[in-house]
Amino acid sequence: MGESAVPLASGPSDPSGSTGEALLSVRGLTKHFGTNVAVDDVSFDIARGGSLAIVGESGSGKTTIAKMVVGLLAPTSGTITTCGHDRSTPARGAAERRRRGAEVQIVFQDPYSSLDPRQSGASAIDEVLALHRGGSSADRALRVAELGDLVGLDDRQLRALPKALSGGQRQRVAIARALAAEPQLLILDESVAALDVSIQAQVLNLLADVRADTGVSYLLISHDLAVVRQITDDVIVMHRGVVVERGATRDVLDHPQAAYTRLLRASVPTPGWRPRRRSEWTDAPDLSDVSDVSAG
């Protein structure tokens, strides 16, 4: 059932390659929910400063992987290592939790539910700074302004409550808050999916700038192949908990090998695209959607 069942294109994130410089190393990661196997024997690496996407549709297991890497879910089996430290089992004690928090941060999809409605952006960022960096309140205020600059928020916007901010501005607050811990790895869990097209472009440009300026690595969880192409170097494609293809993002999107990746690629509307019924696909993989919700 593992990924060895499918011939895989090798790429920079191929686990069989050199792992000396890996910032994040995931091996044999598996998660069961009751009898349902959400993630089945998944392995990948992210190099320091690298950017990897996990792409897939509902039920592919991509968000479950993100939750295990950040520490919100415990794996059934397998290992997760960041900067040489194991994080496959729950942290013991506040110091260990803080150390893990300084390695990996996450930006969620919905900026409307991931911020405290009673806390300003500046206060949310300052709280993370106080926990992870300490320093005087004047030092922290300076750093809050720096982080605001980095994500394109002015002083007035930083002091506003979330309800006074647009979705794009809220997502900037969430990104600044995550960066305040100076993480090595930022998990972007569908972080631009809920944004309007014109705002999404601003945030994608911002994410490219932040990576260039700070050297932070990205693990992008997404269903959107165009977004994946824009901000990642490598990609793994998942279907029902299993990796079906991996490689350099550009190669996988331009020359998809697995039947599922080809279907995914061909489903994206582009100029001249015509929608096709699934029944017209001669080599279509077995997709659960037409049957029952229990399969998803």
Binding site: L263, P275, R277, R278, E280
Partner: peptide, 9 residues
């Protein structure tokens, strides 16, 4: 997205 293509068709 694969379901979208199907429903649009």
């Amino acid at each position: 997205v694969t379901t979208q293509a199907d429903v649009m068709a």
